[in-house]
Amino acid sequence: MTDEHPIEALAVYALGSLEATERASVETHVAACAACAVRLRAFQGVAGSLPIGLAPVPLPPEAWETISATVRARRSHSRMRAKPTSMAAWLRLAGWPAVAAALAALLIWNVSLERELSRRAPGPAPGPEVEALSRRPGRIVILAGTGKPEASARLFVAVDGGGHLAVSGLAPLPRERTYQLWFVQTGSSAVNGATFRVDASGRAWVKVMVPASLDNVQAIAITEEPSPQTSAPTGKHLLDALPWK
């Protein structure tokens, strides 16, 4: 940066459009230059005001309820932490950040589960096994319909590795075809996590075999394959997981 006052860089910085290497340089300059600090604040005001010009859309239902449930779960855990003798064994063994994350995910998970179950098409009830899964802590992975835009899915993974998949927006398949969920692990081929079909509404709720650690999984995808199942994905990716780490 050669300008005495890097106005161009300040403007780009405020929009969040400056490369990382230049960001540090701007921050150093602003810390020592009152004039540029004032200018940057004004530019940040411009950037922060841009969304006001958008046509507003209604807030999604249940969003606040999910936030509130997560906050209360964290608060509840804080109280539990103050009384370690009352915690279950796995809570005692886990570190605080892991527990906080797990509890937050559990709450979001349960809210998501309830919503998903309430949206389910008429059919067999999830059953006690799924209900039990929903009560265990874990995390959620979102799968977006990269090859099937109207499709979406949530993968719920318990801390002990069990999990299940809620998927919607897929087309019912003929007898000789099936859907498969894949975990692509570091340094190895894809592992099948579930083979399933969807109901007439395009939805399915299936139990998933999850690899020992999701941390070793590079990608998660759903493909359409010949029935009964294949040992490796051959079809195009219909859904892919968004970053979950």
Binding site: P51, P56, P60, A63, T66, I67, T70, I142, A144, L242
Partner: peptide
């Protein structure tokens, strides 16, 4: 500010479900 945050998120990601995740 929730409405403004959601409006911005939806404008950027273009998908209501993902925008809801950003909002939360």
């Amino acid at each position: 500010y929730g409405g403004l945050v959601f409006t911005l998120a939806l404008r950027i990601v273009g998908d209501p479900e993902l925008a809801r995740e950003v909002l939360q």
